[in-house]
Amino acid sequence: MRRTRTGPRDVSREPEPRQPGRVLDARLHLLDRQVLDVDGMPVCTLDDLELEAVDGRSAVDERIDGSVPVVITDLLTGPVLGTRVFGGRPPASRWHRLPWAHVVDIGTAVRLSVRSGDLDATWLERWTRDHIIGRIPGGNHDPESSG
């Protein structure tokens, strides 16, 4: 840890003005929460957030800094998890995006307005169902309460 002998300098802090909307901290309220679909089916865990400038500039073309307002455009899941654990960065083409416009509610879980089955993020779930689990007898039936 980089630290001077006298310890870190504490900057003087001013009171934060009241904000005009709901305040969310990424790590405390968004990242690593369970994402549920419109029926309450688990979709994925929220692994990362994609941020872009409001005027449409994307981070790939131009450097973004404090001079332009930035918003969350998508929730990300899938291989981006590896980057949070091990570092590095997967190509943007392999991110699974869930648009912010589909987010209905943020509580102890993040709820979407769409069905899990319609999302790219759950392709592996469908693949497993279609090629393995769905082919085993009984896989498409509710569990029995007798027998």
Partner: peptide
């Protein structure tokens, strides 16, 4: 495993509705 990765889980669902959990 399912709860860490956000998969669908639970025996209250039919296996086809929680395939990776069963796998």
């Amino acid at each position: 495993l399912s709860q860490y990765l956000g998969w669908s889980w639970g025996k209250f669902r039919r296996p086809a509705r929680a395939p990776r959990f069963h796998l």
